[in-house]
Every structure is written in C-alpha cells, then in structure tokens.
C-alpha cells in the first residue's frame, strides 16, 4: 500500500495527464447518427418495426468511401424488459432479444454507383448518389419482430441505435479511426414507440 502511495505521490503529474487525456477522448463529435423515428406496429398477430435513421457522414468518412474503402454500418435492435425498482430512476433491465443488421456501403467506380449490401443476406442494391444510398439505409421498413418476445408489451421496450463498425475497416486505418473523433458517429440508444 505504501508502495502504491509513494508511486502515486511520485508520478502524480503523470496520472493527472492521463486523466485529462481520457477526458479528451470522451468528448464526442458534434454530429453523429440519429434515430429520427422508430415505431412498433401491430400487424395481425405480429409486430413490425418501422424506423428512420439519419446518417450524416463526416468528410473523413466520405473521403474514405470515395477512395474505395467499404464502410460497414451496424443497426442494433434489442428488446429489453425493464422492471422499475425505484420509479424511473433505477430500473432493472434485462435484454430479451437482440439483433444486429450489418450493411456495407461502397463506391463502384466503374458504374459510379454506391452499392449497399446487407451482409446478413448478401442482398445488394445500387444507388446513383450517396444521399440516396444513405436514405435507403436509414429506412427500416416492416422489420418483423419475434412475437414470442412481445407477449407483454407493457414492460417490454424496444431500443435501436446505429453505428459504424470500425473493426471492419482496413487494418492500417483502424487505429486512427478508433481514436479519432471523426469516426465516432454512433447514435445513442433510442426507444421505439408502440402503436
């Protein structure tokens, strides 16, 4: 213990520097992905999710895209069961179901098209403009939700968020992207509305 204390005393300025460094990492980029709307609709016996996510890309990401680097987008959806223990301030949450939709967006130079490919299904679509591609990416339409997990809609919540899969980037770019705020575009978890 004495040793820890003495080391701390000795290198206090260094520790303070580390603390400041970690704080600087915590500051996020000004603009990031945003879930604009998310609704769960009951159709027949099942439930479907409709959502709209805005993908404002930073110039750095656009530059990478235009240089042929494929960018992977992740859309994470989860159903949580939250039991309030102390009002709304402290809730015990349990994930009942979750899924991640992965999309790869890349630029096809020959056709001058942006190709959006669902990595789970290998289904791909091409768009003449980036905006069109991102628009299409941001539209989640009639995504089927597992009905067995939705038996009790009062305590079950659906959360959605989107982010870039930085680990899918080419290796040389990865360290830079991981520590750069220009690549930190994750949206916070958003709650879907029940209709």
């Amino acid at each position: 213990m004495a040793f820890t204390m003495s080391v701390y005393e000795k290198f206090r300025p260094f520790f303070i520097f580390l603390l400041l460094l970690s704080l600087s990492f915590a500051s996020q980029a000004s603009e990031s992905f945003k879930v604009e709307s998310a609704t769960v609709k009951k159709i027949g016996n099942g439930y479907v999710l409709n959502a709209k996510i805005a993908y404002p890309l930073t110039p750095r990401v656009k530059e990478a895209l235009s240089n042929g680097v494929p960018i992977t987008f992740l859309q994470e959806i989860r159903l949580i069961r939250s039991i309030p223990l102390l009002g709304q301030y402290w809730q015990w949450q349990k994930t009942r179901w979750e899924t991640t939709l992965s999309y790869q967006l890349r630029y096809h130079a020959l056709s001058e098209q942006y190709i959006l490919k669902a990595l789970d299904t290998s289904y791909q679509r091409s768009f003449p403009t980036l905006t069109a591609a991102l628009d299409a990416l941001g539209h989640i339409e009639s995504l089927n939700l597992p009905p067995e997990r939705l038996s009790d809609t009062i305590v079950t919540r659906l959360q959605i968020r989107s982010r870039l899969d930085l680990h899918a980037l080419p290796t040389p770019m990865r360290p830079g992207a991981l520590i750069s705020s220009k690549w930190q575009l994750s949206s916070p978890w958003s709650m879907a509305e029940w209709q």
Binding site: S111, Q113, Q124
Partner: peptide, 8 residues
C-alpha cells in the same frame, strides 16, 4: 434512367 448496375 440508364445505368450500369453491379448485381448479385
């Protein structure tokens, strides 16, 4: 509209 499309 006419374009070259990369298909599956």
């Amino acid at each position: 509209y006419i374009s070259l499309d990369p298909a599956d």
